[in-house]
């Protein structure tokens, strides 16, 4: 047993670790690749086609078979087979070379959309996944949820109306709330509005918007508008966006008498020996984190000051309602104050 070569043992170990890494590395590992590709079953393809048709027909866009194949990025053979099968099942019908949804097909599509949006809502409220992952996860989960699962999910979430991107969630009977909004790019200077929807497609623009820290529910005021950029103020910050990004953000315009808090600040910039009044908690903070802060007394009108600075800079302790509560900067930046 003493005759082995440690160098070879080390090399074997390194080889195995490399293999393990290639298989299981996050997102691009072979294991995930295999797992996801085996998921593209008939059911998934059929449901994806129905969903695609529904969204396009809603925008009065009618697709032929070639369009469907192109937008789905799936094997052509399988897509065509799937459409044929759905025609015999009465989910879609052919009008010339245009593929159209039947009534039962559009009901089916709505069920999938309901599952998708409810699951996004669930991920936002009840889990810790990053918001850039919500859509992809829901894309997979929507095919796994049965109708009963979906209804149970809706019940536990309190039958929500909108998903975290602001899209309406269809009810069991297929009803959907109407979005009465205007894209930010169409607003006039000085308009005040509340962000009600951020498109999660295309992915690149959506991630850019997320990186800017813009979120649903916040009230904005347009400050400047030109063909190159649009500037608006929200929650104490100025945002500069290219029109293509602004076009993906929808706001509902508010009446003029709504008081827009212009000199709003964020709690993390409060300095020692300063007093401030809380205006509210940013809508970005949801679920458990939001409730916890409310419970601790970070509510509208409460006075807050710094109690203790931290030797490492973070977290700082804030004095609120006579109690000293330490918050990290990423939380404090979501509490809006006025000095």
């Amino acid at each position: 047993m003493n005759t082995y070569n440690p160098l070879i043992a080390l090399l074997i170990f390194l080889g195995l670790s490399l293999l393990g890494y290639l298989f299981f590395r996050p997102n691009r590992g072979w294991y995930w690749f295999i797992k996801n590709s085996s998921r593209a079953t008939d059911k998934v393809i059929a449901e994806d086609i129905l969903k695609r048709l529904y969204h396009n027909e809603n925008a009065s866009n009618f697709l032929n078979i070639n369009d469907v194949v192109r937008t789905l990025k799936q094997d052509e053979q399988m897509v065509v087979e799937s459409i044929n099968k759905m025609t015999t099942l009465g989910l879609v019908k052919m009008e010339g070379d245009i593929v159209r949804l039947t009534k039962s097909g559009s009901d089916y599509a709505l069920r999938i959309i309901r599952a998708h949006r409810l699951w996004e809502r669930y991920l936002a409220e009840k889990t810790g996944f990053n918001k850039s992952e919500w859509h992809q996860r829901a894309e997979r989960k929507e095919h796994e949820l049965t109708m009963d699962d979906t209804n149970l999910l809706a019940n536990t979430l309190g039958n929500p109306q909108f998903d975290p991107h602001g899209d309406p969630i269809p009810t069991i009977s297929g009803k959907m709330a109407k979005l009465k909004g205007v894209p930010v790019s169409d607003l006039k200077v000085n308009t005040i509005g509340r962000i009600i929807h951020i498109k999660d497609k295309p992915d690149i623009i959506y991630k850019q918007i997320l990186a800017e820290n813009i979120h649903i529910g916040s009230i904005i005021r347009i400050v400047e508008k030109s063909s190159e950029r649009i500037v608006f103020h929200s929650e104490g910050e100025a945002f500069k966006l290219a029109p293509i990004m602004a076009g993906n953000i929808t706001v509902s315009v508010l009446e003029k008498d709504v008081a827009f808090e212009e000199d709003v600040l964020r709690l993390n910039i409060l300095k020692e020996n300063e007093m401030a009044k809380i205006i509210g908690i940013s809508k970005e903070l949801r679920g458990e984190s939001r409730r916890r802060l409310l419970d601790l007394g970070f509510v509208k009108g409460a006075e807050v000051s710094i109690d203790l600075l931290n030797p490492l800079g973070e977290p700082k302790a804030y004095l609120i309602k006579g109690t000293s509560i330490a918050l990290r900067n990423n939380q404090a930046s979501k509490i809006l104050i006025k000095k």
Partner: peptide, 17 residues
Amino acid sequence: SKTVLKGEVSTFNLELP
């Protein structure tokens, strides 16, 4: 926190009694 636990809810607060 980056892999198996990333889906668990994460909040922070610390009371200094």
